[in-house]
Amino acid sequence: MDIIELKKIAKRIRLSTMQMLEKAGTGHPGGALSMVEILVTLYFEKMNIKPHEPNWKYRDRLILSKGHGNPSYYAVLSEKGYFAKEKLSTLRQYGSILQGHPDMNTTPGVDMSTGSLGQGLSIGCGMAIAAHMQHEKFRVYVIVGDGELDEGQNWEALMSAVKYKLDNLTLIVDYNKLQINGSNEDVMGIAPLDKKFAAFNWNVIRINGHDFRDIRNALEMACSTSGRPTVIIADTIKGKGISFMENNPIWHGKIPDRVQFEKIFRELEGDI
């Protein structure tokens, strides 16, 4: 797809994301905004999917392990046609198909329920192992947060993916440098990420996670790497696209007030 086209979609996704959060009055803006370009590239360019047959057996799978980031994920799924756009305004409400965290049993297109951090990569390994056992070609993508990497289960799964030579598995780290209590490095310290993944024998690619060309190339390289899994460390900005939210940890799970929303929509709509 044309990069200009992808950029337009990303803008629409950011706008939908903030509209959903305004309506819901609850949710997590920061981490939803940092992974927009990643999701858009995956769903609009890379993944082999059939939105009108969400459970198609041979589809590529995506696990949003950082499930709290789901508003932008839901916006992308509806933009792809998995469900009607009107549903977006029901986010987090009673009876909605759009639960507070991704739910595979209520939302068409969601391949795995998440919310308890640290589990997605193991699940992705299971899917990728199944593909190998069945001699199928589908690919598995897992998006994790950087703070999420504090969870030890990730590091168990990193070893499994190498052991089972899961070259059909791609891990994407939304490396926005922030988690709830502040910067990753102040909270626990996950750096140096590239060296850690390399020491675990993964194929490591580092990119600008807001640059469509970078993302596209990295995904391409992941596909053409055989015999081992690839991790894409995507440098991103938490709150990306909204000036006063960028790089500020307070916007992890906070909803702007009315005046702030006006400013947000001026910025985002002005862009479109």
Partner: peptide, 12 residues
């Protein structure tokens, strides 16, 4: 924990 996660992925 990883074992249960991998099992979950396989089941889907």
């Amino acid at each position: 924990q990883n074992m249960v996660g991998i099992a979950a992925g396989l089941s889907t």
